[in-house]
Amino acid sequence: MGWIGDTVGSIKSIQIRQLLTQAVSLGLIVTSALIIWKGLMCITGSESPVVVVLSGSMEPGFKRGDILFLHMSKDPIRTGEIVVFNVDGREIPIVHRVIKVHERQDSGEVDVLTKGDNNYGDDRLLYAQGQQWLQRHHIMGRAVGFLPYVGWVTIIMTEKPIIKYILIGALGLLVITSND
């Protein structure tokens, strides 16, 4: 019971100056995180520079919970590249490998077909009804590097929101009660 009493006591003893300092430091943490994320967006040219692999369709290369770093450059898309794409009518982007490319002579537009390494057939079944090919605007970026396991943090937090709230609550309490 001792530490609860201490906590309540330290909350009571907060003065206005201290409160301001803590608000500013909290704001600094939040804004610097935002700066890093937006900076990454600028450097990589992709609207989401980091994605978490959610399915096992690229195993054994990428497992569920791995993190991928994306890069979107002007370079043309070629077979073998691992791209992240959005299909109309689907919220979650898909990470699969390009197996066919047809690039137009006049306009330079591309038709792309993808397939998951671990899937039996190509992705036409995943595309929108009647869609045969992916175009450039469907593609969000290509994977250039990856880190294993780190993405599990986000997967757990989205699937078990209670853990997220506990974590945020504990962190908030720490920030409020810390006297440094």
């Binding site: 054994p60 290369g61 077979t79 490319v101 047809h102 690039e103 137009r104 330079g108 390494d117």
Partner: peptide
Amino acid sequence: KQVFVFVAAEYETPKNSLNQISLWDGIIP
């Protein structure tokens, strides 16, 4: 961790400046 290997056919047509078609692929663990 692994090497992904594939054989692609590449050719040009009057309509398309590049056609790339994967003919075979494999994962070497």
